[in-house]
Design a protein around this nucleic acid. Sequence first.
DNA 1: TTTGGGCTGCCAAAGATTTTCGGCAAATTA
DNA 2: TAATTTGCCGAAAATCTTTGGCAGCCCAAA
Lengths: 346, 346
Amino acid sequence: MRRPRIRDVADRAGVSVSTVSVVLNEVQSARVAPETRDRVRKAAQELGYASNAIARSLRTQLSMTIGLVSDEIATTPFAGRMIQGAQDAAWRSGYLLLLVNTGGDESLERHAIEALRQRQVDGVIYATMYHRHVTVPEQLNGGWVVFLDAIPMGSDQPCVVPDERGGAFAAVTELTRHGHRRIGFITDELAVPAAVGRLNGYRRALYESGAQFDPNLVCATRSDTTGGHQAAARLLSLPEPPTALFCFNDRMAMGAYRAAAERNLRIPQDISIVGFDDQDLIAPELAPTLTTVALPHYAMGQWAARRLVNAIAEAKSPLADTAVREQIHTMPCPLVRRNSVGPPSR
Amino acid sequence: MRRPRIRDVADRAGVSVSTVSVVLNEVQSARVAPETRDRVRKAAQELGYASNAIARSLRTQLSMTIGLVSDEIATTPFAGRMIQGAQDAAWRSGYLLLLVNTGGDESLERHAIEALRQRQVDGVIYATMYHRHVTVPEQLNGGWVVFLDAIPMGSDQPCVVPDERGGAFAAVTELTRHGHRRIGFITDELAVPAAVGRLNGYRRALYESGAQFDPNLVCATRSDTTGGHQAAARLLSLPEPPTALFCFNDRMAMGAYRAAAERNLRIPQDISIVGFDDQDLIAPELAPTLTTVALPHYAMGQWAARRLVNAIAEAKSPLADTAVREQIHTMPCPLVRRNSVGPPSR
DNA sequence: TTTGGGCTGCCAAAGATTTTCGGCAAATTA
DNA sequence: TAATTTGCCGAAAATCTTTGGCAGCCCAAA
């Protein structure tokens, strides 16, 4: 038994096809008698009719679909939340997400975007696994795009990234509020936006608390557990060691925990530690649980989809005055207080 | 400047629309002169023509799109790999994934599946966050479905799940091979398929190695770090404690590490531990790194998409004899050897 | 000269829907 | 009573592509 078409509904209700369309789409301009409406709706109900979105798209020139192209987003733990946020926001506006994963392969990316354009997506979200600068793929220039966790170079297309600086500021301020003055910063050796943003936030927070910035207290290294371990070990064996450590991410914080344990330093009595990322499997699972800064992946995904949907809507209705908006939107990174911060010892 | 249509290509090449279609789709049956072919291709090239997949779908009754509906798949760390696998396999056959996330909400799920059907998806992958039994949503009965990491109840639709039993067998055999006879099993308190499968594998491996199954050595509790910690503490304080622990998942293994540390037991010299799941942020990051069993999420996703694509293809070409296949496909869970297993002490 | 056949390439229909325009009857106004 | 408005509905066009049938054309054979 094939799916019912609009024609079938029309026949059953004893009206024309166009009337069914008008009723089901609740078109205001064309008025049709209430009892006719009821008849049509009843017929559709009974037949289990659902309009064919393909045919509709062809006619309306709107696919109600947005493409999500990403490098390796689906494979990283929290990045899935970006998809989730985008999907939820899109869904609320009647859009669905067409997912494409390029694994960073340039030629595959071209093909993927081409495939999305062929499918007439109304817009594209271009997402990267971690906050960074990207060159805008040629073919993306025609249509609507918003960049997610990525900053397009040489382009004024909208994008959303985490407020690294603000997050770091909050983290370090949490430490200075507890009275810490010597705060180590264990950071990534790479000059990614996250590293420079967080360094700025760190310095700013020190400055505002009146603490001195000491270059010897920042240690750049590989951004994994062992990197964090080594860096923490180095900082803690300084003649005048820091009383608190701010780590570039939770993995490094995990390494710092280990270094502290090796020195029989208790957290937070002897040393305070705060991380970044709020990773599910680390921050709440460490002993003690880790105070850290959450990356707003869900919110960023949501923002991206909303922004895209708005842009599409505005383009469709020319009378809507397009709001003036900043093109680089930064999303706040909230501090998550747990149990790894206390006042300095002594 | 709007996208070129097939009509534009036809005009530029000085041929009819149908000829363009035939050339671009490389239809074997209809022959057209080589120089005409070239002319058409050149025109298409120059115009940057790409066919409109919407219109094509309408005509061919094939959307080349498969829907992926999941409960909370996108938010969990490794589950993203399922999507990735499915997407890669689909892509290879020219399909794209339409993603929908229901968050477990029944009514939302109904709407989502409806939206997918409206968009004429050629098939649906129904995925769950963790291996479990599900009731098949009503509306899924018409079309092609394959279940991913889920077993449909009262249905013979194809599904793919991890081989829990085999994975546990491999894990425990790794321990018995090292000479362990008293092996604790820290498992989930819930009777999920993973728990029963892994218990069976555990018993089987003990049996094959000639070791005794001792009910006192299996401890069911909450499947998180603290659960693992408590269970390990209990087992290790037994009068005759186990020399090795097999944990239901890596989080519990992490708790077991902590319990071992509290007793000054070194891993693997004093006690061996193996986990399950091979979670990115735990297994390779613990000290020592954790021997564990990998859940084949990527492979399962791939399998699901492939199976679906095949089913669709077979349905389209009626002469292809449909292969006889098992309906519950189990995917092997490979053992990942790291540094938490050694011979028993004493 | 006609017939037949092999190549090429075109015509037109179909696929499911939305939207515009026009028609018709009833109701209201002049 | 005639003219105009209003309310409701149907016909047809438009969206873009694919596909099966068919029409020319040219050459060879009868």
